[in-house]
Design a binder for these strands. Sequence first.
RNA 1: GGAGAGAUGGCAGAGCGGUCGAAUGCGGCGGUCUUGAAAACCGUUGGGGGCAACUCCCGGGGGUUCGAAUCCCUCUCUCUCCGCCA
Length: 425
Amino acid sequence: MLEIQRIRTQAEEVVVALTRKRAGHAREAVAQILELDEKRRKILTELEKLRSEMNLAAKSIGQLMQSGKKEEAELAKSASTQAKEQIKSLEEELAAVEPAIQDQLVSLPNVPHTSVPDGREASDNLTVYQNDIQVTFDFPAIPHWELARKHDIIDWELGVKITGAGFPVYKGKGAQLQRALIGFFLDRAGEAGYSEVQPPLVVNAASGFGTGQLPDKEGQMYFINEDNFYLIPTAEVPITNIYRDEILAEDALPVKNCGYTPCFRREAGSYGKDVKGLNRLHQFDKVELVQIVHPEQSYEVLEQMVAHVESLLTALELPFRRLLLCTGDMSFASAKTYDLEVWSAAQGRWLEVSSVSNFETFQSNRLKLRYRDKEKKTQLAHTLNGSALALPRIVASLLENHQQADGSVRIPAALVPYTRFERIG
RNA sequence: GGAGAGAUGGCAGAGCGGUCGAAUGCGGCGGUCUUGAAAACCGUUGGGGGCAACUCCCGGGGGUUCGAAUCCCUCUCUCUCCGCCA
């Protein structure tokens, strides 16, 4: 959520920036916000004046009562009745205006950073880096779902039986590989200074709102009706919400957390060719990084986080590339996002395994996540997060890129201490 | 699932319908003292809105009243005990 002060003072800049981000209604929305905001302040001025008068009147009535001047007190009472009605009607006006402002504010996406390239869709993203790992086979590459079936390490049909499509069962070395990757990712995050947390996997609506999933992506989350809880679509939600309504000391920044959680996504409306194998699941595992930083540092930190994720991919010996997302492909809450994609050798395409974003104050404004600056004033902190990493597509890429002529799969050296086996099959 | 209790400032914990943004203790910060530290003592210490005067916030919402942290209704949450279960 953008700060109302920013819209007030830089309306035109905001409109121009939002227009870059496909938000076609930005100009009207901003104009409406400004109008409502002005109305709100007008009401407020009047209301507070009346309240002030009422407070004084009430005080003097109290004094009259105590000194036994009953008649005078009664007189004063009846005089304040009119003001009371005015206050009530102004309060009703305010109660209509404030949610209207809020609705408009909440529906505006974040403003893209100046370094974010213009673009309408995924094809406009900029490939800003690609490592030099080339994977070539002198035998036909087998897709990961076939390798998984061959070695009996992932069972989709079993998942369908237990739950439904998109909930595979990992078996044997498949299950161990999952556990190994989680351990590996968490250990690396720990070495990079992130402290590990294990948050709840279900969250309340306030948390969903805080990080921006609600109301924007309500339909993408599983909802537990009896308790009004949502299954988390990413650990970003519970971990960032740890700091909701907090005022941190400036020297407590940066706050660095990491956590492993399963993630649950309904993926409503995204059926098609992309869903095969591990490409798109309703439940998957992910290690997430979250940082809360001083505004001056957030873009530097964004680069650091990307570098960390890339070091993981390098250790796994995977071909990958880094994309700078264009304005049109960025998420609602992000000011700047890098995606990391790994090559899927058999499918012959890139798979997104990480998304690292700087939200600037977009989340912290909703979360009321602040720090106290040197002048002792509260300031909104910047929040960032990134996957490090999402497992299924990593597994897909590992299987496909490290497959051998005999159909076995080599485990990269960095992972062997965690798997305690060197190959599958 | 059954029964009960409660929700107040960073924490603990007072609070009579008016003088309560709120006692007191702890913690935090600043200072005095000290070679330094501790102790002691003194001072200070919530958040939001508004250019400002000012105003709002004692779990959320509504009501009674000239006036509500205090009374009433309602919702939510937390805790304790019992039952069930890991």
